[in-house]
């Protein structure tokens, strides 16, 4: 479960990074970002990758977690890059959805471990 959260957070993080790059904004959003949005995404991207790493470490410890995380990061970047040329408009909503579902997974895992 947390493995999936690791992957989803990484995907969301990459969507934010991708969106903060000027060349990808027109194809994904059909417009340029405002300065404020740009700033938010610049923070959001590393935050997503950081959350992904944190979830991997929580799930498997820092040794195995680090290896898992690198795997998840590669897979997330690959899926975004392959989705981008074919369904550019889907990438951003998918990123938001991934962040949400990842958060829910992590929250439910935390609740289960408390009980």
């Amino acid at each position: 479960m947390i493995h999936l959260a690791t992957l989803l957070f990484a995907y969301a993080g990459f969507v934010a990074i991708c969106l903060s790059m000027a060349k990808h904004q027109p194809e994904i959003l059909g417009r340029k970002l405002t300065a404020k949005e740009h700033k938010q995404l610049r923070i959001g991207g590393p935050l997503g990758l950081g959350a992904s790493y944190a979830s991997a470490v929580v799930a498997s410890g820092w040794k195995f977690g680090s290896v898992n995380w690198i795997g998840a990061v590669m897979l997330a970047a690959l899926s975004l890059t392959l989705l981008l040329p074919y369904r550019p408009k889907w990438t951003a909503p998918a990123g938001a959805g991934a962040a949400f579902v990842g958060g829910m997974l992590l929250a439910s895992a935390a609740l289960l471990s408390i009980k």
């Binding site: 990808h24 970047a77 890059t81 981008l84 040329p85």
Partner: peptide, 24 residues
């Protein structure tokens, strides 16, 4: 980093695919 242009010229697309599988 996120660039793959399958519908461009052969050389462009193959180079993108090569970079994609290598870099990611």
């Amino acid at each position: 980093f996120f660039t793959f242009r399958p519908k461009k010229t052969a050389q462009r697309s193959w180079l993108d695919a090569h970079n994609l599988t290598a870099v990611l």
